[in-house]
Design a binder for these strands. Structure first.
Lengths: 247, 247
DNA sequence: TGTCAGTATGTCACCGGACGAAAACGTACT
DNA sequence: AGTACGTTTTCGTCCGGTGACATACTGACA
């Protein structure tokens, strides 16, 4: 028990650094309102499949003429695109920057073979997740399950770290186990099992399987959990991280 | 010959719309300098694995104090992250927005099985590409080839549409063929074969195989090209686009 | 037909937000 | 110690960003 407590504590202390954002410590007085507003509008455009000027202005709580001017700026530099019907969607330049930044998160492409193996083992949908903005977890990549009824795509979605399996894995809150399983955290009748992937500086991502609760029960969870933990350990070794046995 | 020319012309007229950006027609006088500057700094941060304040300011041609203020704004809203060594990298919020926007480009996740099949057929690295910013093509997803010596990852990279196979495919410039192959366009001794994927409104993406020229020769190119065209036609049907036979 | 509500776009007087030169600070090196 | 360079802070200044208002357009309804 004592030895089990000691290994957990250093992992937990490393995890907040992985989830913490440098943005918290930036003096607010030096912020630039105009840019804040434009970025908020950009986020609003991305949060919807397609959005009108007035709805965007409403959600960002800006006068319409202000929103139009800022959205025009975003449009000119191709961070948003405006369709013929007047609605805005994310632009090619934002996608480019996002894909470039994502491909630099080396855990995401590295996890692809492991995701395929997990799907092969379980038939459930497999995900790799990374820390998201404002202390969330971001589903960054997936391989779909093979069952006729399977989990639908969550790529691009953020979830809270509290109360979710992926969140717990990213935070290192495994309670002495190698994986964590949570039922009905994000959606009813959906169970997720997750394990963390560690790099030099601590936890950098998580592998997870997500599927309907009726297939993820007391007989399958330990089996799938062990497979996820095994794959996560392999990725951890590949990234030069410390596996639990070495912590 | 005449019938072969007629089908090409309507396709070519549809393709510029796919590559054009609505940003071209936005009045420049309504742009917001401050936001333009911040977005340029964001792009500079994404263009490098990691970058210092002074280098970022240099590349954006801004005074250091101005760059610091704008980067602090980007940092506060988690579009960039500043490490302990002072260098900036892309932040979680940018990744989130980028992944969300990318996952809304339905061609990218839809292409995953096709990419795997192409790798299975050829052993070469397979990509799905979409229109990028400023008339470029963006490599948006990949499945690595199986050869010991294979093409390294280009995901997140943009290439010119002129003179490249993917660019030609995205532009619809196939010269009556179903695929296009180009040698040494982006890098020496690398050959790419590509075919367009069409949606309702025209070309939305391209499938491609990329590999060393010594393995992509006159005997393999027609075989791989036909496989790519077949997969692209399947995706086109899935997206409700018009296949060449229907144009 | 007219009326109304909502959306999108343009205008311009105004003021405060963004600017950047200069100073101060921190670090590494000789 | 001095030097060089990158980073951060300061603050007077001005011009860039603002938003209330006007206008045009569209769709729904009586």
């Amino acid at each position: 028990m004592t030895s089990a407590t000691a290994p957990t504590a250093p992992v937990a202390s490393a995890a907040p650094a992985a989830l913490g954002a440098s943005g918290d410590r930036v003096p607010e007085s030096t912020s630039t309102r105009t840019v804040d507003r434009a970025l908020d509008l950009l986020a609003q455009v991305c949060a919807a499949p397609s959005i009108s000027l007035s709805e965007c202005a409403r959600r960002a709580d800006l006068p319409t003429s202000t929103a139009l001017r800022l959205l025009r700026t975003l449009e000119r530099s191709q961070f948003v695109t405006r369709a013929a019907d007047g609605n805005y969607t994310a632009g090619t330049r934002l996608i480019h920057l996002g894909v470039t930044a994502l491909s630099r998160e080396s855990v995401v492409p590295l996890a692809a073979p492991a995701l395929h193996r997990l799907v092969g083992t379980s038939g459930e949908t497999a995900y790799v997740s990374i820390p998201g903005p404002a202390g969330t977890a971001l589903y960054a990549g997936m391989v779909e399950g093979t069952h006729p009824v399977r989990h639908a795509g969550w790529v691009g979605r953020t979830i809270p770290v509290d109360g979710t399996a992926v969140g717990a894995a990213l935070s290192g809150r495994l309670r002495g186990e190698q994986y964590v399983a949570v039922r009905s955290a994000v959606e009813p009748e959906v169970t997720a099992i997750a394990a963390p992937i560690r790099g030099h500086a601590g936890i950098v991502g998580a592998l997870s399987l997500v599927g309907p609760t009726h297939r993820m029960d007391d007989s399958t969870i330990p089996l799938y959990g062990a497979a996820i933990a095994l794959e996560a350990a392999g990725l951890t070794r590949a990234l030069g991280g410390a596996t639990p046995a070495e912590v």
